[in-house]
Amino acid sequence: MASIEFVNVTKEFEKKDIIKDLNLTIKDGTFTVLVGPSGCGKTTLLRMIAGIGPQSSGAVLINGDDVTAVAPGKRGVAMVFQNYAIYPTMSVRENIEFGLKNNKVKKEERNQLVESISAAVGLTDYLDRKPSTLSGGQRQRVALARAMVKEPSVFLMDEPLSNLDAKLRAQMRLDLIELHKKLGTTFVYVTHDQVEAMSMADTIVLMNNGLIQQEAAPEEIYHEPNNLFVAQFIGTPPMNIGELGVDGVKFGFRPESAQTSDTPVDEYLSMEGEIATREMLGSETLYQMKYKDSAFMLKSNYAFYKVNQKIHIGVPEDKIYLFDSEGTRIRKDHERYSSYLEVLRGY
C-alpha cells in the first residue's frame, strides 16, 4: 500500500516542456485513472512513478519518500505495459518468476507464489508454454501475473486493454475492478478511453497538454466539469456546445438531458430542429439534430424519429452549462450567470 505524490514535477523532452510544474497526490489504495488525448503526458507521469522515465525537475514521492534516486526495481511498483512486454524467449513460468529470482526469493516460495498467481489468473495449464503460442488475452494475463506475483505496493498500468477485442476488454475491466478490491493496493491506470476511465476509477485525473484539467470522481467529472475540455472529453457522445453570442460565452448540455417531442417542449431552453442522422444502438437511439448553423447530438429512448423529420427538444435549466471565452466553467455564483442564462430563453 502506498500513496504517490508529484511535487512541482517538470518533464522536458528535446527542450520542450511535456509537463510543467505539476502537483498531484494519489491517495493510498485508490484506483486512479490518468486519462487524456494522446500526447497529454499521462504515460509520462506513469513512467516517472516507475522510474523508467525520470522527471527533469521536481520530486516524486512514494509513501512520503523521495524515490528520485531509487532504481525502478526497488520502488515496490509493478507495471503492465500496453504491448505486455513479455520476455519472448522465456516460458510463462519463467516470465512470472523472473522478478522473484532477481529479488532472491527462495525456490520453494517462488514455486508456491507462481502456482497460486497463475491459478488466480487462469494460467495454470500454460505455465510451460512460450508466449508466442498464447492468445492476446492470455499474454495479457501473463503480464498481469508477472506484476501481481511481486506483491507490489503500487500497480501501474499503461493502456493494458487497448490490444484486446471489445468483449474481452469489457471482461478484463470487471476483472481489474475485482482485483483492485481484493488486493486493496494503489492502482494507477493510464488510458485514452474515457469509458474505461469512467467505469473503473475511484478518481479520474483528466489531462491535456501536460496540465491537469480536473481531478475528481467519475460522477463529479461528468456532472460538474471544470471547463470546456473536460465537458467535451467525457461522455459519449460528448456534451453539446453552442455559441451564446454574448462575450464569447458558450453553453452546453448533455445529449441525454434533452427531452424530445413532436410538439414544442416547455423547458428553459427549447428549440425546433431537423434530424440529420439516426444511430440505433439498441436500448437507446442517437440522433443528430440540425439547428440553424449548429448540430446537436441527442440520446433518446425513443427510436421512432426519422431522418429529415422536424423535432422539438427541451433542456431544463439545471442541465445547462455555461463556459466563458477561455473555456472555464461559469458557475452559479458568477455575477453574470443569470444574465447569460437569460439569453438562452428564446434562443
Partner: peptide, 24 residues
C-alpha cells in the same frame, strides 16, 4: 518496454543483456 519491464523486475543491466537480449 521489454528492457523496462526487466528493470522493474529488478534485473541488473548485465542480466538484461545476457538473459533477455542475447536469447532474443
Amino acid at each position: 518496454e521489454i528492457i523496462e519491464a526487466a528493470r522493474l523486475d529488478n534485473a541488473s543491466e548485465f542480466k538484461i543483456m545476457w538473459k533477455i537480449m542475447t536469447p532474443m
